[in-house]
Computed example of a mutant assay.
Amino acid sequence: MSKRIRKRNSIGILLVLVFLTACIDKRPNRTEDGQDKLESLRTDPPFNKNSMLFKDTIYVPIYSNIYLDEADQKGLLSATLSIRNTSYQDSLFISKIDYFNTEGHLVKSYLDHSISIRPMATVNYVIDREDDSGGWGANFIVALSAKNPDMKPLIQAVMIGHTGNRNFAFSTDGYSIKASLNTP
């Protein structure tokens, strides 16, 4: 086989690989079968809120952009909200995931139904780097509950960005702003 034919075949194979790679669904908030991650965790039928002994509302700071220098140059960040059920035995129920911008206005409400996170499971939800609707003071409000009054879920955010050839990442922890325990 001549070099010209091998080169042409190599270019053809490369083009096919590029095409196939472009066809892959790269949306991080989708399951392998294309369903929205949060929708896939829907509780059906809805859980009984009165049977929940643990209830909490968590504030999670998010940064969709940060200032990089004194010239007010902003760097865009991708942000991942991570909700971790740390219980070996009990499910964690989430009834609200709301995203607010720097001015305190609701940008998006991610749930119109409750979801359930199995024991020791985690759900992550990504805010794309190009979405700067939250600004430098954005936050999530996450309302959660469980049947076990001793639940200790872990809610965090991880931000990733780059400028030039420098990459950086940092995380923030969620803070309880409205905890309550129902006594049986």
Rank of each mutant, 00 (worst) to 15 (best):
R42E: 08
A121P: 01
K74C: 12
M120W: 03
F168C: 08
P153I: 03
D173K: 12
I141C: 09
N65Q: 13
S91A: 15
H113K: 15
L17F: 02
F19E: 03
Y88M: 10
S40F: 01
P45T: 08
G104H: 06
R166A: 14
N167K: 13
S64P: 04
P184M: 12
H105V: 13
Y59R: 07
I97R: 05
P119H: 08
L144Y: 02
D69F: 06
A138K: 12
T57H: 06
R84E: 06
T183H: 14
K3L: 09
R166Y: 08
P61D: 06
P46D: 11
L76E: 10
R84L: 06
S78G: 04
L154N: 07
A169S: 10
Q156Y: 00
D98F: 07
Y125T: 04
S10P: 01
L144G: 13
Q156N: 09
C23G: 01
D72Y: 09
N139G: 03
S78D: 01
M159V: 09
H162C: 10
G12Y: 00
G164R: 06
S109H: 03
N165D: 14
S109I: 05
G174S: 07
L111E: 04
C23D: 00
K49F: 12
L17V: 08
L14N: 08
D131H: 10
R166G: 10
V123A: 07
K7W: 00
T21W: 00
P153M: 11
D36K: 02
G104F: 13
I97P: 10
S10H: 02
T43C: 12
G137N: 14
D90Y: 13
K152D: 07
T21K: 00
N148V: 12
A146T: 13
K26Y: 00
R27I: 02
K178Q: 06
L77Q: 08
I13C: 05
S2D: 05
T57S: 15
R42Q: 14
K108F: 08
S145I: 09
Y125S: 06
E39I: 03
K178L: 13
D56P: 12
I160L: 09
H113P: 02
S87A: 14
L81S: 04
R129L: 14
V123R: 02
H162Y: 08
G161H: 08
S109D: 02
R27H: 05
F54S: 14
G12H: 02
I11G: 02
E32G: 09
M151K: 14
S91K: 15
M1W: 01
L106P: 04
G137S: 11
K37G: 02
I141W: 05
L106R: 15
V60F: 07
P153F: 08
E130Y: 10
I62N: 12
N101V: 03
D69N: 15
S109A: 14
I13F: 02
D150R: 15
H105C: 08
K37W: 00
G104S: 04
I141T: 11
R8S: 02
F170V: 12
R27A: 03
S109V: 03
I24S: 01
Y175L: 13
I24T: 01
I5W: 00
R84T: 10
T43H: 03
S145D: 11
S109L: 09
R129F: 07
N85R: 03
I66P: 10
G134E: 07
P61R: 07
S180K: 05
S82W: 00
T31P: 01
L15W: 00
S176D: 06
I58N: 05
N165T: 14
M120E: 09
I24L: 02
N85K: 05
G104W: 10
L53V: 11
M159G: 09
D131P: 11
